[in-house]
């Protein structure tokens, strides 16, 4: 059961950051291994790239991008939290500005592709 004292957004942000960080750390060695194949065993890399076209693997890639995004923004959030002595009002304004910017640039990106 969820311990009641953890039931608040900052705690969820903490767990999300931890879990995404761990998952990315597990992914990195595999990533480098695959890159190394390009030099050492190109035919095996080709086989892998074909495998990577499978829909399920594409879906997992989406998850990876999600993890990266979550961890990136989680890290920026922590840096802001610890290095910018904002008042709660300033924090709300900054978060609002960042979300608005993401929304607007996301719309531009969508119409560009």
């Amino acid at each position: 059961m969820m311990r009641p004292h953890r039931n608040h957004p900052l705690w969820f942000a903490f767990v999300l950051h931890r879990v995404s960080g761990l998952a990315l750390a597990l992914f990195l060695p595999v990533h480098f291994y695959m890159l190394a194949l390009a030099l050492r065993a190109p035919e095996r890399l080709d086989g892998f790239l074909r495998w990577a076209e499978l829909p399920l693997v594409r879906l997992a890639e989406g998850g990876l991008v999600f993890l990266l995004a979550v961890h990136l923004f989680g890290g920026l959030r922590l840096l802001a939290l610890e290095f910018l002595p904002f008042s709660p009002r300033q924090k709300a304004l900054a978060a609002g500005a960042v979300s608005a910017a993401v929304l607007v640039s996301g719309l531009f990106l969508l119409s560009a592709v």
Binding site: H8, L10, W11, F14, E82, F83, P85
Partner: peptide
């Protein structure tokens, strides 16, 4: 920086923010 302290302080203080100050 999980903020359990700030979420529970009955005096509505913000130890999380104070600790961020120390880190800085």
């Amino acid at each position: 920086s999980m903020g359990n302290c700030t979420a529970h302080c009955p005096k509505e203080l913000d130890p999380l923010r104070a600790i961020a100050g120390l880190k800085r």
